[in-house]
Design a binder for these strands. Structure first.
Lengths: 223, 223
DNA sequence: ACTCACATATGACCTACAGTCATATTTGTG
DNA sequence: CACAAATATGACTGTAGGTCATATGTGAGT
């Protein structure tokens, strides 16, 4: 089990919370800034060169810190991308709220676009994430629990859609949540294989339409 | 561009063809045997430990050859998995023949199971393939052309299904071919994340049912 | 049977990079 | 101003992918 070397514990990401910002002293602020600089530098390099071809030294040079400093903030190179998992859950929550307020379909369409957003900047970014996901057991278990919890929320979305008869009665919320994630994942990967990379928007729209067709299909046709 | 170091050129795989077996001299037979031993040893290790955690030396030890020998047969460790691409095209062809002989649905269901077959032995196997797919540009372009050609055949399958009115008239063969591959890919990846790994058969059956529901959906419901 | 040219096998060697650690520097505190 | 604790740093280590000069095996020609 890899561990962080720093003493300070950041439950969540960066210096984003303006509330906390006031409480933190100069040192803690510096610390968060450094972590964020390293993270951003790493993401930019992953986007441009890919994960494998980016060395830790590349990152620390771009972030203008010493090499050892990197490992004060991230136990391994892989853990940088693990950060992305922390962001996803909020999206599922937001989609659930949307679904409860309006119609489920548009909430799901929004989520279909939102989930890959951090990674949609370039095919290399997608590949980087998938690579780490497949490679590092530790990061994978971390991300997987995120996916599971997201699937829970997603099940709720479909549940409400079902209650309002927006989708046929024979569908199972839990199963649909699975298919949703499967569809998003597949869409991302196949997107990276197109040359030249087609516009993301359109690509995801089409993917969602196909997904939604299956969701709203009447059972008679199947089999 | 990495190149092979050996002189002999094997268009296709191993010593499989019994016809050729008679023609080949002892040297060529030895050569094919060695290549196959290395390949099998590598695949077994990938299945058990995963791609990253398998070193080239692990492979050569398991295959009982010197380390240098490995690089006589495969330019890089990644290229071992590239071999899998060669096998896929036959499957698409077979599916097309099935579709022309009988009904398209069962041909597609068969293909849905057949495509992941080499890799379905363990989650690590899937991860290994996906990792290489995302990681190595050279192997990726190689595999991608395979996917494209497969997509072509797949389009033909849907075309015949369309002509026979097995699927609604509004569907586009090319688009369906895309969705098919997307669905298979997504299914494979999500399968690896389940703990414990559920039975493949059932998993793929469900994935296909969902796919087929979208294919056969009437356009009215969408949007 | 002998030898010559060439294909193949091999492990010592080189190089690159992830991750460690002892030491230096900065920062908050009394 | 001094002291302790957090943080920064780059020299160092270990490991693994890939290379290459050399050795060995193999088929062909005589």
């Amino acid at each position: 089990m890899t561990t962080f070397r720093r003493k300070s514990d950041w439950g969540s990401l960066f210096t984003t919370s303006t509330l906390v910002n006031g409480i933190m002293g100069r040192r803690e602020r510096r610390t968060c800034e450094t972590r964020e600089r390293i993270f951003r530098a790493a993401m930019n390099l992953f986007r441009d060169r890919g994960f494998q071809k980016t060395t830790v030294e590349n990152i620390t040079e771009a972030a203008d810190v010493g090499k050892g400093t990197f490992f004060n903030y991230f136990p391994t190179k892989e853990h940088v991308l693990g950060v992305l998992g922390e962001i996803q859950l909020d999206k599922y929550d937001h989609a659930l709220r949307m679904a409860q307020a309006g119609e489920a379909r548009s909430a799901l369409l929004w989520l279909y676009h939102a989930l890959p957003s951090e990674v949609a900047s370039s095919p290399e970014m997608v590949r980087s994430l998938v690579t780490v996901f497949m490679t590092s057991k530790e990061v994978r278990t971390f991300l997987t629990t995120g996916l599971q919890r997201g699937r829970g929320k997603l099940g709720d979305v479909f549940q409400t859609a079902l209650q309002r008869a927006e989708i046929p009665a024979h569908q199972k919320p839990a199963a649909l949540a699975f298919r949703f994630q499967q569809s998003v994942f597949g869409a991302m990967v196949l997107w990276t294989l197109q040359t030249p990379a087609p516009p993301m928007e359109k690509w995801l729209d089409n993917g969602f339409d196909f997904f939604w067709a299956a969701v709203t299909a009447r059972p008679e046709a199947t089999k």
